[in-house]
Nucleic acid binder design. Structure first.
Lengths: 372, 372
DNA sequence: CTGAAAGCGCTTACAG
DNA sequence: CTGAAAGCGCTTACAG
């Protein structure tokens, strides 16, 4: 019986397995067995335990369970993002690049629930160098999923020896598995489209964080395909963005202030950047796609609701998260059996979604991505 | 020494406090004391322990620490969102309303880090009725932050007796504290603006989830202010959205298909809804704000980058999360000392950000929200 | 099938 | 100041 009184603040600690055992008239071992479905307990035992559990509203303490069963049912997730003070002005500039990692996390969470796992989220600064906080998170979890390249290859290898680790959009090591999407194929398809279907003569690549593996892969694929398609390829320090709308807008403002000529098409490292570019071009009365075409990467939901609608390379965002979790879960389950196939690089397909910002004409909704 | 061999998959379990004690030639109690800064250990003891810790890369196991110290340093966060299969078409429709709760979570996380806490995220379905999964999450955490009204008042009161609980945008109970923003003041300011400055004669309210306390508060404030300002106030079942862009677009499509007249201004329950409305109106060649004005609520970052730029009521999004965490943390710390002020309703201020979608003329950037 | 007991890896009174 | 020991709340061989 829970004590009820008029003071809401009275603390009633949750019942323990001892309370249940006492109420059911059995040992705590029996309670545990019934709850964990071990070794068919007698019908009557089961009933008494279940009744007591229901009556007391018993739920096992996570820490005790974790310590005893050597399983926390928690996966640590590390996201790399600017650690800014929540001052309005500053934050307003930077907090837009949330959407992509958050959607990936949601894909993880979806799968995690099916296994009874929860996600322990922690973000680290873009420039965080020592991995101490990440090793600490590992001790609160059964395994780790790391967005981006937050650790050096050496650190990763060492971490992967202690605990199962899956990276996202990074590089596999001998002890860790990586999951990413096919930047190369997606970017090449996009550039081929700009050259072939639209006949543009020049494109620029507006980059994301310079050290992001995704950014590097997209840049290189764009450069190679541009060369193969005979396009002039513009890039360089003045084209350096930061995956955020504000970064994209800043690049455009800078170029216009310098009086630079814009290329016929601007290929952005991601959709957020493209949003900033569209905005800045709009402010200066430059028509998209009439004067300058603009494309994104990721295909986040809002891309469909911009004007003009944003042409973008679709990443299987939620799938990335789901796959990362499934992979990690397999590693955790097999941990006891030791030897497992580490060092893999799992690549998920991408696909070009043509909308108006690249110069294509509007099409009926619903046909997106179904084009040949 | 960590075993190194050529097989990356070899598992090297993390060192325990016993390993450290052995290496340092002291008892595990001393190790614990040095690490937790208790009762000034002798200089030499401290040095030996610290050296061993560094050498072995020791980090205490979270579960063992939690069980022993009765503190997990984990806060559970429950978000209410549609639990859909990651099928593209379906997800594409619904996963846009992520941004707002995710930004709140980020505000929490920012503060949580300073206290050495992590967030354990779990989402439950919009229509989840029984709170079992939430009570289970409570056993993995030191306290809970609940977005929205995910539990009945009775369940909340009961939960709050077992563990510290803070709700967001809900209603306080005798055992829980609520944090929300001032929907009423923000919405009234907005409607007053539409009536007073722009002289519109009619407005509609395009709603969010019908049972969301935020939605109810915004609806009622809009209705009251409309009445006081002598505006015709349009609403009803055909104006029922779902906080998502797709929902907003669907409402507009439905109205136009019925041949209904649109009011002079559409006040949306949140920004995501407004994005869908802008899009649908654009598809039908209806000029915003010339023919119909549109406003949002929340002021998410992308609102600034739409065309026309979206007029919206700014909620202190990150502050909501930060305040929720700070409040919960205070409750956790004082848990031992029992009696605490529960039942509070903490209200954060809102503010109208006028941009072009309501009919205001463009202004210099940087002056947003600084108008009288 | 069930109970008594050991043990998971820590923290913290309790002695010395 | 430091160590030996108890205890946190579970799970799981080990006996019976």
């Amino acid at each position: 019986m829970v004590t009820t009184d008029n003071n809401g603040a009275t603390v009633t600690p949750p019942p323990t397995i001892y309370d249940v055992a006492r109420a059911a008239g059995v040992s705590i071992a029996s309670v545990s067995r019934v709850l964990n479905g071990q070794r068919n307990p007698r019908e009557e035992t089961r009933d008494r335990v279940l009744r007591a559990v229901a009556e007391l509203g018993f739920v096992p303490d996570g820490a005790a369970r974790a310590l005893s069963a050597r399983l926390k049912e928690v996966v640590g997730v590390v996201v790399r993002r600017p650690q800014l003070l929540p001052t309005e002005g500053v934050f307003a500039d930077e907090d837009e690049n949330l959407q992509f990692p958050d959607m990936i996390n949601r894909g993880m969470e979806f799968v995690a629930q099916r296994y009874g796992y929860d996600l322990l989220i922690r973000s680290v600064d873009l420039h965080e160098s020592d991995g101490r906080r990440i090793f600490a998170l590992a001790r609160k979890s059964d395994g780790l999923i790391l967005h981006d390249q937050v650790l050096s290859a050496d650190q990763l290898t060492r971490l992967g020896r202690q605990v199962p680790v899956v990276t996202l959009a990074a590089t596999p090591t001998p002890t860790t598995v990586n999951v990413r999407s096919d930047n190369q194929a997606g970017m090449r398809e996009l550039v081929r489209h700009l050259a072939g279907e639209h006949g543009y003569g020049s494109i620029a690549y507006l980059g994301g964080h310079w050290d992001s593996p995704d950014n590097v892969a997209r840049f290189e694929a764009a450069a190679q395909q541009a060369a193969e398609s005979g396009l002039e390829f513009v890039h360089g320090p003045q084209w350096q963005g930061n995956y955020c709308a504000a970064g994209g807008a800043r690049v455009i403002e800078g170029l216009l202030a310098d009086g630079s000529d814009l290329p016929r098409a601007i290929v952005c490292a991601n959709d957020q950047t493209a949003i900033g570019v569209l905005y800045a071009l709009g402010q200066h009365g430059i028509d998209v796609p009439g004067q300058v075409a603009v494309t994104g990467f990721d295909d986040i939901p809002v891309a469909r609701h911009l004007s003009p609608r944003l042409t973008s390379v679709r990443q299987p965002i939620q799938d990335l998260g789901a796959t990362a979790f499934e992979t990690l879960h397999a590693m955790i389950s097999q941990a006891a059996r030791d030897q497992q196939p580490r060092g893999r690089d799992i690549v998920l397909p991408t696909r070009l979604n043509r909308r108006e910002s690249c110069g294509c004409s509007p099409e009926r909704p619903g046909t997106e991505g179904l084009l040949p």
